[in-house]
Design a binder for these strands. Structure first.
Lengths: 212, 212
DNA sequence: GTCTATACTTTGATAGAC
DNA sequence: GTCTATCAAAGTATAGAC
C-alpha cells in the first residue's frame, strides 16, 4: 500500500531480522515486498550493502522509539524495565520465537566481515545507549553509573533474546528482566537510601535530543 | 598436523565464529583446513548441515570446558565471575574483536531457518546452564535461584559480546562482568548475611556429570 | 519508474579417475 | 582417501525496452 521504496525497506528489515543479512536474497526481498526487481537497483544503486545499511539504521531507530516509548509510558523506572522485558518476551512468543532484536543477527554477521555495515550497527547501539542512559539519569541514577547500567540492561536483553530464540523459550527474557530490575535497584540504592520512592521518574522526562 | 577430519572441524569452527554459518563457503573451509575437497564429503556425507551440527556441538563443548575451567580455578565465586568476563574481554581485544562466543552468530542465523542446527545450539546452551547452575549451587546459591542466575550471567556475557564486537570496544564485556558480580552478590546476600565469606566455594566443587 | 531477460559469480554438491 | 573436473542452482548485479 505504501511507496515501493518503503515496502522494500520494510520487507528487508523483516527478512534480515529472521534470516540475517547474508541469508536473505535480493530476489526474496522483491518477492516479499511485492516490488518490481528493477526498482530495487533503481532505489538502491549501491546494491545489497546500501540496502543493508539503510535497513540497519531504519530498524534500529524504529526499535529505539518502540522501546523508549514503552519506557516513557511507565510510571517509574522499575515498572519501565519490567514493561520492556515483559513486552519483548510476549512478542517473542507471539512470533514463534522469530522477532527479537531487529539487528543483532546482522550485527554478528558483519562484525568482522563488512566494515560499513558494522559501523551502522555500532551507531545504532550507541544511540540506544545514549537514549537509555539519559532516562536512567532522569530517574535518579548517577551520571557516572548510567552508562554502565544501560549497557548491562541491554546486554541482558540481547543475551536473553539469543537464548530465547535458540531454545524457543521466552521465559529467559522474563528472567533477564528480573535480573535487570535487581541491577536497577542496586544502582538506585547507591544514590538514595529510600528505594521505595527512589525509582520514581519525573512524569515527563526531558527526551534527550537525538544526535543525528 | 592433525587428522584431516579434525582440521576440517577446527577450521570450520573458526570461520563460523567470525563469519557465521551461511557466510562461510565449503571451498573456503577446505582451503583454510588445507584439506582435499573430496575429503569434505567423504567425512561429512550429510554436507554442510552435518558439518555445521558437529561444529556447533564440538565448539560448544570446547568453550564450556574453557569457561568452566577458568571458573573452577578461581578461589571463590566472585573471583570466578571476574576471571571469566575479564578473560573474555582480553580475548576479544587480542583477536581484533573477532573471537567471542563460538556459536552465537550461528544460533541467530539458524534459529528460524534450520531446525536441526537450531536444536544443536539449544542443546549447547542448555548444557552451559546446567554446568553453571551446578557451580552456583556449590557456591551457596539456593537451587531455586541458581538456574535464573546463570541464565542472567550468560545473557550479560552474550549481550556484551554482541556490543563488544559491533562497537569494537571490549570495555562492554568488562562492565557486564561488574554487573554480573553485582547479581551474584545479591543472590549470595539472599542466603547468607555475611557476604564476606559467603562467596567462598568449596575448594573442589563436585563437577556435575555431563549428560551426554 | 517498471519490467523482463540475462550476464556473471559463487554456492553446495557429485562423478569418476587414481 | 585424495584429487580434479564439473554440475545445477542460487547469488548479486546489469542492460535495455517500455
Amino acid at each position: 500500500m505504501g511507496k515501493t521504496r518503503e515496502r522494500i525497506v520494510d520487507a528487508s528489515a523483516e527478512l534480515f531480522r529472521r534470516q540475517g543479512y547474508i541469508g536473505t536474497g535480493m530476489k526474496q526481498i522483491v518477492a516479499a515486498a511485492d516490488a518490481p526487481f528493477g526498482s530495487l537497483y533503481h532505489f538502491f544503486p549501491g546494491g545489497k550493502e546500501q540496502l543493508g545499511a539503510e535497513v540497519i539504521r531504519h530498524a534500529g531507530r524504529y526499535y529505539e522509539e518502540l522501546v523508549m516509548g514503552i519506557w516513557d509510558a511507565a510510571p517509574d523506572l522499575t515498572s519501565a524495565i519490567d514493561a520492556v522485558f515483559s513486552g519483548a518476551a510476549e512478542v517473542l512468543r507471539q512470533t514463534d520465537y522469530a522477532d527479537a532484536c531487529p539487528i543483532a543477527t546482522i550485527a554478528l554477521e558483519v562484525a568482522s566481515t563488512n566494515e560499513p555495515l558494522r559501523e551502522a550497527t555500532a551507531d545504532v547501539f550507541e544511540s540506544w545507549f545514549v537514549q537509555g542512559a539519559a532516562r536512567l539519569e532522569a530517574a535518579g541514577i548517577k551520571r557516572a553509573d548510567a552508562r554502565d547500567l544501560i549497557v548491562a540492561l541491554l546486554s541482558l536483553l540481547e543475551g536473553a533474546f539469543l537464548f530465547g530464540r535458540a531454545t524457543r523459550d521466552a521465559v529467559h527474557v522474563e528472567r533477564a528482566g528480573q535480573a535487570a530490575a535487581a541491577l536497577v535497584r542496586d544502582a538506585l540504592g547507591r544514590v538514595n537510601g529510600s528505594p521505595g520512592r527512589a525509582g520514581r521518574t519525573r512524569r515527563r522526562p526531558t527526551p534527550p535530543r537525538r544526535t543525528r
